[in-house]
Simulated scan of single mutants.
Amino acid sequence: MAKKVCAVTGGRGFMARHLVAALLRSGEWSVRITDLAPVAALEPEEKEGLLGAALRDGIAVYASADVCDLALLTKAFEGVDVVFHTAAADPVNNSFKLHYKVNVEGTKNVIDACKTCKVKRLIYTSSSAVVFDGVHGLFGVDESIPYPDKFPDAYTQTKAEAEKLVKKANDTNELLTCCIRPGTIFGPGDILVPYIVSYARTMFIIGDGKNSDDFVYVENVVNGHICAERTLTTKSGAARSGGKAYFITNMEPMNMWRFIYIVLEELGFKRRIKIKIPAYLLKPIARVLGWNYNKLSSIYGVRPKFWLTSVTIKYLTLNRTFSCNNAIEQLGYQPIVSLKEGIKITTESYKSMRYAH
Rank of each mutant, 00 (worst) to 15 (best):
L165E: 14
N170Q: 10
P188T: 07
I145N: 01
F139R: 10
A160S: 11
I196D: 00
K101M: 13
V197T: 00
K118S: 15
V131F: 02
N109C: 07
T158E: 06
D190Q: 09
C178K: 10
K118Y: 11
F204I: 05
R201D: 14
I180H: 06
E161F: 15
F204A: 13
S128D: 00
P188F: 05
K115T: 09
I185D: 05
S144R: 13
N170G: 12
G207C: 02
Y100M: 04
E174V: 07
V131T: 10
K115F: 11
D142E: 08
I145K: 06
F186A: 06
S128A: 15
I196E: 00
T116N: 02
G134Q: 03
Y155G: 08
S144G: 09
P148Q: 07
G106E: 04
E143Y: 10
K97P: 00
L192V: 15
D142V: 09
F204G: 03
V102N: 05
R181P: 02
H99G: 00
I196S: 01
G183H: 01
P146A: 04
G140P: 02
K101N: 12
A129C: 13
A129F: 02
N103W: 07
Y124L: 06
Y195Q: 14
T158N: 11
D149F: 10
E161G: 12
D149E: 14
N103P: 06
Y100V: 03
S127A: 06
T125F: 11
Y155K: 10
I206K: 00
K168R: 10
P148E: 07
V193E: 04
G187A: 08
V141C: 10
T177E: 05
K115W: 05
